[in-house]
Design a protein around this nucleic acid. Structure first.
Length: 283
DNA sequence: GCTTGCGCCTGAATGC
DNA sequence: TGCATTCAGGCGCAAG
């Protein structure tokens, strides 16, 4: 599934292959992929026709195209979304949802199997679309404010993993990277946020940056000239995961079998030795 | 205002 | 073998 590093790869690919191009025609093949564009698919298409793409920006796992009239095309890949830049004659993908015919001879294609992702046009949204004003900066963002994050984390009455997954507090961290970061920081997911001390918090941030940077290094390798890669697989899967999905396998630090717990209707993987469950933990 | 849980969606994996 | 059920995941929204 696409995580922050893949989204960043998409952004770079768009800059390389689509910025400067005019959208001759926009076609919505599945209305569900524009369900967050409340004015509907026809309005979505009309607003894009004739517009020139002037840039691509990212906040967390959202990426948006800047248009020459100050509108923005906000995109989220969800669980299974891909952005491809291909020639029109390339065969249509099974789950092709939205196509922009560009005047540079290419097509911008949005493909999404599970339809958790989608696109919308945000009026005047080139700087930061209003629809995602609540999304916090990610820990790699130079303007990420550590003190502000620490303060808000302290005020929470919840567990640390829930907090890491809350995109309004810190963005770009999904279930996989949350588990990896917590393993690296040697903290249990149920650690209460209000009692987390500053050094622990900095350990978590450092760990989160580390997994993101490492994945970004991997993700960047899989993109070529005509294909803006988001193959639906994280580059991070290329290197071994330490905790996520490793149930029963020995922890690489201490050899204790990794444990899987049900958590928020999902999974949480921990090393029971390196990441002992806190006495007053919170879910 | 904050926290928690549901529902969206498909296909692979699993169970009977 | 074939059908039915479960699971995975990010995020918006509603309920508590």
């Amino acid at each position: 599934m696409p995580e922050l590093p893949e989204v960043e790869v998409v952004r770079r690919g768009i800059i390389e292959h689509a910025v400067g191009a005019k959208i001759d025609k926009a076609t919505v093949h599945d209305v569900r992929s524009v369900r967050r564009h409340l004015a509907g698919p026809t309005d979505f298409q009309d607003r894009l026709t004739g517009r020139t793409i002037t840039g691509a920006e990212r906040r967390g796992k959202y990426v948006w195209l800047r248009l020459d009239n100050d509108d923005a095309v906000l995109t989220h890949l969800g669980m299974s979304g891909q952005v491809l830049i291909q020639r029109p004659e390339a065969p249509a993908q099974k789950h092709l949802k939205i196509v922009f015919d560009l005047d540079n001879g290419q097509q911008f294609r949005f493909v999404d199997q599970r339809i958790f992702g989608g696109m919308l046009v945000s009026e005047g949204g080139t700087k930061l679309p209003a629809e995602i004003a609540h999304i916090a900066r990610d820990p790699l963002d130079p303007e990420f404010d550590v003190n502000d994050f620490a303060e808000r984390l302290k005020r929470r009455r919840t567990g640390i993993k829930r907090a890491l997954l809350d995109q309004s507090l810190i963005s770009g961290i999904g279930n996989i990277y949350a588990d990896e970061a917590l393993w690296l920081a040697k903290l249990h997911y149920a650690r209460a946020t209000d009692t987390t001390r500053r050094p622990e918090m900095e350990r978590i941030l450092e760990a989160a940056r580390s997994v993101l940077v490492s994945a970004l290094g991997q993700g960047g390798t899989s993109f070529d000239a005509l294909y803006v890669n988001v193959n639906g697989e994280s580059g991070y899967f290329d290197r071994s995961l330490e905790a996520y999905g490793q149930e029963g396998l020995p922890c690489s630090r201490c050899g204790t079998p990794i444990r899987r717990d049900s958590f928020m209707n999902r999974s949480a993987y921990t090393c029971p030795t390196c990441q002992p469950r806190p006495r007053n933990g919170r879910w």
